[in-house]
Design a protein around this nucleic acid. Structure first.
Lengths: 201, 201
DNA sequence: CGGTCTCTTGACGGAGTTCAAAGCTAGTGG
DNA sequence: CCACTAGCTTTGAACTCCGTCAAGAGACCG
C-alpha cells in the first residue's frame, strides 16, 4: 500500500470495485473535503438539497424518512467504509426526503459536484466505479425487500445482531425497531425472548 | 427523431438519462439481440447465470424469489420501456436467486457481455448511462422499502391500481398479492371492499 | 437531583393469516 | 365442440402476531 495514501478506508473501498492508478486515486483524494460530526448530529434534514456524496471514513450513521404523521421510518444503517448520502437529491438537485444522522462521532469524506464532474470527466474509470458502487447498493436494497417479504421480525432481529453485535449499544432501540419494521414494544418483547443477547442490563 | 432508429422505446430510454450522438446510439442498436417470449415464459430461473441485460421493448414481466419453503416473493413488476434482469448475476457471473417470467407476449432487446464491454469501452458515456439508470432503480427500491414500512396493504393496493389500472387483468392475483406483501385471500377481501375497481366480473 | 427521553410490561384490539371448502375459469383432450 | 380437470379466486371462521394505549421503571443530561 502506498505511503502517500491518507485515507486507506477510502482507497480500499474504491479498489474493491475498480483498479485505480496512483494518479487517478490521488486526483480524487486531494479534492476530498473532510467533515467531522459529533454523535447525534444531522448531516441532512428532509427538505434540504444535499450537495455532497459522503463517504464514512469512520463512524456510524442512520437515515430515515418521516411520513405525513411525523413517524420516522429507518431505511438504512451504515458504518465505516460505506457511502451514506442521498443520490436522488445530489444528482437531481431536488430537496431530499431523507434525514441522515450520526450515532457515533463521525468523520466524513465529501465529494461535491465540482469534484464529481471533474474526476468522472478526467478519469472515466470513476464513472465505472460509481456505477458498480450503486449497483451493489441496489442489490442490497432488493435483498432488503426480499427479507421484508420472507422473514419475520424476530428473524430480522436475530440476523441484525448476528451481523452487527454491538448495534443495540450504539443506536436507540426505537430506531432499530423501525429499521426492522416493528414497534419498540415488539422489539423489547423479542429481546426478552432472547435474553442471552440482552444489553443495557 | 431519426429515421434510422429501429427501436424508439429503447432510444427514448437511453436519451432520458444521457444525450447520445447518432453514432453512439447506432453502435449499440446494431448489436442488440432481439428475443421474443410468449406469455408465461421464463426468461430466467433461479440457479442460472444470466448472460444478458434485458430491455423490455414491448411486454410485461415479473420477477420473484423463492424462499426455502418454496414460497414465491414478487419483488418487481416491469413493462414496456424498462430493464428487467438481474445485474447481480450478470456482473458477478454467479447463479441468480431470481426468477423472471413474462405475463404478456414480450419482445426483449438483449445486451450481452461482449456488447456491454464494447460500448462502455468505446463510448464512456454508456458507463454514465448505466450509472444513472441503476441509480434510478436504486432510488425506486428505496421508496419501495419506505412504502413497505409506512403504508398498509390496502394503501399499497390502491396505489398500484392507480398507477397500473389494468394490472389485475394481466397478472394472476396471487402474484400481485405477493408483490403487495399479503396473501391472496387478503387481496380478495381488499378488492371486495373497493368494488368499483373490481375486474373479472 | 429533577426532568425528559427511552425502554419495559400488561391488557386489549385489529389487520392480516391460516385452514377449509366452494365457485369460477381457462386450457386440454376426447 | 363440449366436458373435464387443474389451478385460481372467493368466502367464512378461528387464530395470531403485532400494534395501540397506558403506566411504570430506568437512563441520561443539564
Amino acid at each position: 500500500m502506498n505511503a502517500e495514501i491518507k485515507y486507506p478506508n477510502f482507497h480500499k473501498a474504491l479498489n474493491s470495485n475498480v483498479k485505480l492508478s496512483d494518479e487517478e486515486y490521488l486526483a480524487l483524494e486531494e479534492r476530498l473535503i473532510v467533515k467531522r460530526l459529533a454523535k447525534k448530529e444531522f448531516l441532512l434534514q428532509s427538505g434540504q438539497v444535499i450537495r455532497y456524496l459522503p463517504f464514512i471514513n469512520e463512524g456510524l450513521m442512520v437515515n430515515f424518512r418521516a411520513d405525513e404523521n411525523g413517524n420516522r421510518h429507518v431505511l438504512q444503517i451504515r458504518c465505516t467504509g460505506w457511502w451514506m448520502g442521498d443520490i436522488y437529491s445530489f444528482f437531481s438537485h431536488q430537496p431530499s426526503f431523507l434525514n441522515i444522522i450520526t450515532y457515533k462521532p463521525t468523520e466524513l469524506l465529501l465529494l461535491n459536484h465540482e469534484t464529481f464532474d471533474f474526476i468522472t470527466k478526467e478519469f472515466p474509470i470513476y464513472e465505472r466505479y460509481f456505477r458498480i458502487a450503486i449497483q451493489k447498493s441496489y442489490v442490497g436494497t432488493l435483498t432488503q425487500i426480499y427479507n421484508l417479504h420472507s422473514t419475520t421480525a424476530e428473524e430480522r432481529y436475530l440476523d441484525l445482531i448476528r451481523n452487527v453485535p454491538t448495534i443495540l449499544d450504539d443506536i436507540p432501540h426505537y430506531l432499530i425497531a423501525s429499521y426492522l419494521n416493528i414497534k419498540p414494544q415488539s422489539l423489547s418483547r423479542i429481546r426478552k425472548k432472547h435474553k442471552e443477547n440482552l444489553r443495557h442490563s
